[in-house]
């Protein structure tokens, strides 16, 4: 196992994060603060409690989820796409490092950044609400698991993309709409029955629901089903990545 190679990719990616700290960390924190001001304080004060929680508190898990999904995907897709774009991928491909090790380096770095941003958002939100986390272990576990899963998904997008527009395509037109419609800002139970049923086809519902459960013990979906859904998606991404590396798809000619 080329641990030094994994570490080299990981450190390289992390140093890029700290070199572009405004874009990597400050920007999502600012967005969260704005969400809290607009939805939490301004509009949220006029919204009734949801599942026994005031709207600001209800908002926190959804907001964290919205950010880490986007961060995970953009971090890892950009991480692998940029060497392809700049030509520096030659070094990765000619190094004694296996596809699994390459994936580990990029995905672990992207997931670390997402977890870091998630924790910073939680810390920021504690300035606006009194934060309570009933299942802290599960919260951290889910934060890491979801970050890893979506970093893997982002890695696939980064390999598939052959221009910058394609990198933005799936996050903008699929992930963000699904997250907004996946119960980040409302409970699925608030929807008419038909739309509740439709919502269960949205995979993001399971993530948000599980994450909210770790905070408040309430969830729209059974926690076991949610965790199964996350692992299913993780497994799907792993299978896709192994197929990509085996065939050399969009990497080797």
């Amino acid at each position: 196992m080329n641990i030094r190679g994994i570490k080299a990719i990981y450190n390289f990616e992390m140093s890029r994060t700290f070199r572009t700290i405004t874009q990597s960390i400050a920007s999502p924190v600012l967005s969260t603060i704005l969400y809290f001001i607009v939805f939490g304080s301004a509009i949220g004060s006029r919204i009734n409690d949801i599942d026994g929680l005031n709207y600001s508190s209800f908002l926190v898990p959804g907001l964290v989820m919205l950010t880490i999904l986007n961060q995970s995907i953009s971090n890892s897709s950009f991480g692998i796409y940029f060497p392809k774009f700049s030509g520096t991928i030659y070094e990765i491909l000619s190094a004694p490092i296996s596809p699994f090790e390459i994936t580990c380096g990029y995905v672990l770095a992207a997931a670390s950044k997402s977890v870091l941003v998630g924790i910073i958002i939680l810390a920021t939100s504690s300035f606006f609400i009194e934060l309570s986390i009933i299942h802290p272990f599960w919260m951290i576990f889910l934060l890491i698991l979801i970050s890893l899963t979506f970093s893997l998904f982002g890695f696939i997008i980064g390999i598939w993309a052959d221009d910058f527009q394609k990198i933005q395509l799936i996050p903008s037109f699929i992930i963000t709409p699904l997250t907004f419609l996946g119960g980040s800002f409302y409970s699925i139970n608030m929807l008419p029955e038909f739309w509740q049923k439709v919502s269960y086809f949205n995979p993001i519902v399971y993530l948000v629901s599980a994450f909210r459960w770790s905070f408040y013990g309430n969830s729209d979906v059974n926690i076991k089903i949610s965790i199964f859904a996350i692992f299913f998606f993780l497994g799907l991404c792993l299978v896709l990545i192994s197929m990509i590396f085996r065939s050399g798809y969009k990497i080797k000619t």
Binding site: G5, R19, S86, I97
Partner: peptide, 23 residues
């Protein structure tokens, strides 16, 4: 082709290469 990470420092890019090759 000259393909480098423009914003990286010279010594860091060498450290990266050495690590990548498991040294």
């Amino acid at each position: 082709e000259i393909a480098t990470d423009s914003f990286e420092r010279v010594i860091n890019t060498l450290r990266f290469s050495r690590g990548l090759f498991n040294k």
